[in-house]
Computed example of a mutant assay.
Amino acid sequence: MAFTTDYGESNDVFRFLRMDNDGNLRIYSSSGNNGSGNITQTWAAVTDQCQVYGFCGNMGICSYKDSKPVCGCPSQNFEPVNEHDGRKGCKRKVEIEDCPGDVTMLQLEHTMFLTYPPELSDQLVTLAIVACRTNCLASSTCTASTLVADGSGFCYLKTPDFVSGYQGAVLPSTSFIKVCGQAIPNPSPYQEASPKDNDSLHTMVIVSVVMASLLALVVVGIGFGCLNYEPLESR
Rank of each mutant, 00 (worst) to 15 (best):
F3M: 07
G101S: 01
S208M: 09
C136R: 11
D48A: 03
E230F: 11
Q182E: 08
C155I: 15
D22W: 14
P117W: 01
G32C: 03
C99S: 04
T143Y: 09
R26L: 10
Y28V: 06
N82P: 10
D66H: 12
G54R: 09
L106T: 11
S75T: 03
V170C: 03
S213G: 04
G151K: 10
Y116S: 06
T42P: 01
N38I: 00
D98V: 13
C62M: 09
S10H: 07
C50R: 01
R87M: 07
P172T: 14
P74W: 15
C62R: 10
K158E: 11
N34S: 06
N77I: 02
T141H: 06
L114D: 11
G165M: 05
V218L: 13
K68D: 00
G8H: 12
L232T: 07
T5S: 11
E192H: 09
T5P: 02
K93E: 00
V163G: 09
I61K: 10
T47R: 07
G151C: 05
G8A: 11
N33W: 10
F113K: 08
Y53N: 09
E109H: 13
A169T: 15
S200E: 05
L25T: 10
I177F: 00
S152M: 07
D48W: 01
T40V: 13
M59G: 01
T159H: 13
I222G: 01
T47P: 00
Q191M: 12
F176E: 04
E79L: 02
Y229M: 06
G23V: 05
L120T: 11
L17G: 07
L201H: 12
A216W: 00
P172A: 09
T4F: 10
L108D: 02
D6R: 04
A169K: 15
E230D: 06
D12C: 04
M211K: 08
P172C: 06
C142P: 15
L108G: 00
G54I: 00
V218A: 11
T5G: 04
D197N: 06
E97P: 00
K88I: 03
V205C: 13
G181S: 02
V218H: 04
V13H: 15
H202M: 03
E95T: 12
A45R: 08
F224G: 01
G72I: 08
E9V: 07
R87T: 04
Q107N: 05
A216F: 01
R92S: 14
D122H: 08
P74S: 09
E192D: 06
V103W: 14
V218N: 11
V179R: 05
S121D: 11
P117D: 04
D6H: 06
L127E: 10
R133S: 05
Y64S: 00
Q41I: 08
D122L: 15
S208C: 07
Y229W: 06
D161P: 03
S145T: 15
C90Y: 08
V207T: 12
N82K: 09
I184W: 00
V125Q: 13
M105K: 05
E97A: 13
E230Q: 09
C50D: 08
Y64P: 03
C90E: 09
S29T: 05
